[in-house]
Design a protein around this nucleic acid. Structure first.
Lengths: 232, 232
DNA sequence: CGTCAGATTGATCTGTGTCAAACCCAGTGG
DNA sequence: CCACTGGGTTTGACACAGATCAATCTGACG
């Protein structure tokens, strides 16, 4: 695996940024990106750690990251996976608090670092941008609430089914039908919020029931309807 | 219990609102409140229901509410309790989505209804207000993330200890040291995310261990340090 | 004094975590 | 080319936290 440290130029970043922030005027986005640092990260690197004071937020130009908290005995609780076009770290900047999550790359990634000064300036000076950021924060908030109920009340199997469907719709599938998001059993179990062994057992249950196919990390959902029903 | 339907006038609402939204210019707040409806709710009433389309958000002038989701078999998962000065319902308005929670009063309450038009107008026209709303959304987001980890990884007892401390610091205690927030065992269990019977057992465990006193709804925390340690 | 919601206790069952061992497979180096 | 290694995966055995079901108790209130 040669590390083909491809670094896009700033205009590429801006045009990708516009896909997420559709209704923000061009000059506002440009202003936001004046002090941006574009950086390449190899798979497995940490962007920042829970508890650290970050002085800016990150826009993911390409690649996959996991956003997680570290709990009892170092066990990770994955909050979500981030994909290209996602922005993260803004919570700590806006609240001026230490980061409440860690972020680690799951593939080679290119990230745009946006310093807090730029971010805060745009929030208070670009209504369009403030509005979009609010949308994102509120969406995450809704997801989090939803997630709290699930994790508190549903069985692990139901949560697994739900998360498989979520991954399929969020990250899509390859031509052969397998999930594009390619992660270890451990990461998957840390997302579902269960022990790795339990996750593996439940995966093979689903396999036996004909709802999925799974060899290694190639997971294919065979019956979305039944999975959906299982998830409720 | 006479229903003393005390309704404050709008200037009282505004001055209480200013305590939460310190850095918003007076005229902006006034503008936000032009179409406000001030309303009295008796204990046990619903402000809105999960899934309903609400056309505005609510500012709690006085009283206590519970904000919850309804899950499997009608079991509630309480996301948080709201107290005077809190604002809720804005997520659905901003996202223009159905409400993802229900809100029910736990005491007599006075609420200010702020129509979506006013809210959205202020978000896009008052940078100060947008900033404060962002702060609130991000704070809730941080709490939610924290909560997800806890519920996924900690034992019920640890969560109970943590929540007792949270309630003490959020709602305070009476002169005799008992928690001000006065709720049923069922609500408490729905907040912790466990069965009512389990919650009751654990409460008496804590009582036997000398960490709390509890007769009926009067709960007093005796040893904050040990509770804190238990919560980790 | 009866009623009823809420609180408590007991008995039992089970989903899930934990510990341990084995297995698979890709990459490395001799 | 093959043995070796190590990370990731899988299976098995077992224990226990917590859910569920059922019964009783308590206290407020009409």
């Amino acid at each position: 695996m040669k590390e083909e440290a491809f670094i896009p130029d700033i205009t590429e970043c801006i045009s990708k940024f516009k896909l997420t922030f559709k209704d923000v005027p061009d000059q506002d986005i440009k202003a936001l990106f004046t002090d941006t640092v574009i950086k390449f990260y190899k798979k497995g690197e940490y962007i920042y750690n829970e508890g650290s004071r970050i002085k800016g937020c990150y826009f993911l130009f390409s690649g996959i990251v996991k956003i997680f908290q570290t709990g009892i005995a170092g066990k990770e609780q994955i909050i979500r996976f981030g994909k290209e076009g996602d922005i993260f770290g803004f919570r700590s900047v806006i609240r001026n608090e230490p980061a409440c999550t860690s972020v680690e790359t799951l593939s080679d990634c290119v990230l745009c670092y946006i310093p807090n000064t730029s971010l805060m300036h745009m929030i208070t000076h670009s209504p369009g941008f403030a509005y979009e950021m609010m949308q994102i924060a509120c969406e995450e908030l809704g997801d989090a609430n939803h997630y709290i109920r699930d994790i508190a009340q549903k069985s692990v199997k139901a949560r697994l089914a739900e998360i498989l469907l979520l991954i399929a719709s969020d990250f899509g599938v390859e031509e052969d039908g397998t999930l594009k998001l390619n992660i270890t059993r451990e990461d998957l179990s840390n997302f579902v919020g269960t022990a790795t062994e339990t996750l593996i057992r439940l995966l093979s249950d689903l396999k036996n029931e004909g709802l999925i196919e799974a060899k290694g990390r190639k997971i294919k959902l065979l019956d979305h309807d039944k999975l959906k029903r299982l998830a409720d």
